[in-house]
Amino acid sequence: MSRTPRQIGEEVWKTRVEKVNAELVTLTYGSVVAQLCKDFGNDYIQVNEQLDKMGYNIGIRLIEDFLARSNTSRCRTFKDAAEIVSKVGFKIFLNITPTVGNWSQDNKQFSLIFDENPLADFVELPDDGKAINELWYSNILCGVLRGALEMVQTQVEAQFVSDVLRGHETTEMRVTLIRILEDEMPVGDD
């Protein structure tokens, strides 16, 4: 690869992305989460699930937009994929580059550590004593990642393990490779 993921991300962000006001995104996402909490009667486990599902549906569509804009080539290893996710994916859609780290021994698990998270600006969790232990506020991102990677034959699990909104030191998402999906021919199609 002639250019680093960081350079690709920077360039696409500067030249090929239409931007919207960050506050609009933050407020709209906040409004969605608040509404979900209401809809599910503050059952935050269900809210997490719903956010993940919404993200998944975004991810499976977003990947196409990502590939069209970034024009990146196939990743050879899961490590490459992690770099692209952080330096190109998050860069061009949210203008952040979460740190990739905490690789497991077998290189099948890594963390994305978010120094900044535009979704969570001016956010406070409901102070019902429950949300702080149960709600993963930015859970939509897990779904987006899962959906997008699945569309490029990479099945992963993604979940937050800490969040500054809950009073933790960092906001960290754990991503685990389940398997690389094989291209399967439809039945009866030679």
Binding site: E23, L24, L27, T28, G30, S31, V32, A34, Q35
Partner: peptide
Amino acid sequence: GLGYRVGQGL
């Protein structure tokens, strides 16, 4: 209703 909240915030 979602929009309403966003309008208020903006």
